[in-house]
Design a binder for these strands. Structure first.
Lengths: 226, 226
DNA sequence: ATCATATTCCATTGATTACTTGAATACTTG
DNA sequence: CAAGTATTCAAGTAATCAATGGAATATGAT
């Protein structure tokens, strides 16, 4: 191999590594995961990931430098969004890979969720099957902004924070499937516990919007396009 | 969100970041790309990527720690291989993402390959179409070990290093499609230049085995299974 | 056993990274 | 134009990482 070939290859792989570096930080992956729920401002991202605004801003800029995210000014706020749906897919395959290959992730889930995961739960594929069979109520327990940015067709918005107020709208004679951001989000689990305590027939979906998209489930958006 | 939830999320995303870290080095991505051609020993990987054995070994161990690669002892050699085909897919989507989103990669290709890429070339999909239309000769110009580890069904092995000796076996009345490791590998381009100079009708395929696998083209292996 | 070979481990170097704090910028709104 | 707010920039610190060269392991052959 010539010197020139080596230089070429090194340059190309080094470029790819820049994308790898962008997803080599837990914080940044969490940010991307949040952004796969919909666009958000720096401030709201920072408080969601429990970091300073300054630090969050710097992570976002790392992501922007490799075009994983885009910015748009909205009044005095700057809104970050994923560059395209392909990015959500990349994070999803990274997550699937981790779940299959990293035992430590299963250990962590067991340690923190333990028997809570053994409550009734289904994944996206099972959900699809149940939806086709009919007679199931879909409940989206994420904050309403994320519901508006994109939710399963037919799902009712009942954010966890005021789910008690929304219970009147939910059927007591039908199975309820609650979903949230994805497998690292406990909102659906929390919601199901509350619902079950109040006499509903409910279980949670272990996957989230990014997975539903990948499975080609119908997604609806409300209000202004992202 | 409770303290406990934050701890759980941080732990999960930090685990994912370990996989991200593994693919955050150009050298390691190059190693994974090489391994997607087939299993190899540390020594042969080191000389292929122009690094010391020691350094290569350490990179490989980083990859092994997150189960992206597996080792097997073969006599006095230790052979590294991808953990599964899913890994090759991950590298492939990383590469596709980079090619779509990073302008610098296109610039680098232009700078190093320039008008050589403007020679006749086709991608995997076009190859599929041509193969179905028939009357095309497939030539695999990678080293024979890689051919043996897996090659397109029907392809003739003609390693670049002794392609002149193999020319007698190639047809002069048919189009020849030469492929190598993938888009960062110039062997197919080199081979086509030599072939054309010698009066063959030849063009190169811009993708490699990992892409052919992803496109569900038929792959054959020879000799002992990997 | 002893030697040779392939690989890994270890200590050190210089370079990069995450996070914090405080100041600077870039907008919008009055 | 001035004031206010959201975001970014800059500098400093502690931690991590890539690469090197040499010592240590492990296996196979003599």
């Amino acid at each position: 191999m010539t010197m020139r070939d080596r230089e070429f290859k090194s340059a190309m792989y080094e470029s790819l590594a820049r994308v790898g570096k962008a997803i080599s930080s837990g914080r940044r992956i969490e940010l991307l995961d949040l952004l796969s729920q919909g666009p958000r401002t720096v401030e709201s991202l920072a408080s969601e990931v429990d970091q300073t605004i300054s630090n969050t801003s710097q992570h976002l800029q790392v992501l922007r430098r490799v075009n994983l995210v885009q910015t748009k000014r909205n009044g005095t706020y700057i809104t970050y969004a994923l560059a395209d749906d392909q990015i959500a897919d990349l994070i999803r395959s990274l997550r699937l890979m981790g779940m299959t290959h990293l035992a430590e992730m299963r250990v962590t889930m067991e340690r923190f969720l333990g028997d809570r995961t053994r409550l009734d739960s289904i994944d996206g594929l099972e959900l699809l099957r149940l939806m086709q069979a009919g007679s199931i109520t879909l409940v989206d327990v994420r904050p309403s902004a994320e519901y508006r940015a994109g939710h399963l067709a037919g799902a009712i918005s009942a954010p966890l924070c005021d789910i008690k107020a929304r219970m009147a709208e939910l059927p007591r004679d039908q199975d309820i499937a609650a979903y949230c951001r994805g497998p690292f989000c406990v909102m659906a689990i929390d919601a199901v516990e509350i619902l079950v305590r109040n006499g509903f027939r409910a279980f949670h979906v272990t996957e989230g919007i990014a997975d539903f998209r990948a499975l080609n489930l119908a997604i609806e958006t409300e209000g202004a396009p992202a």
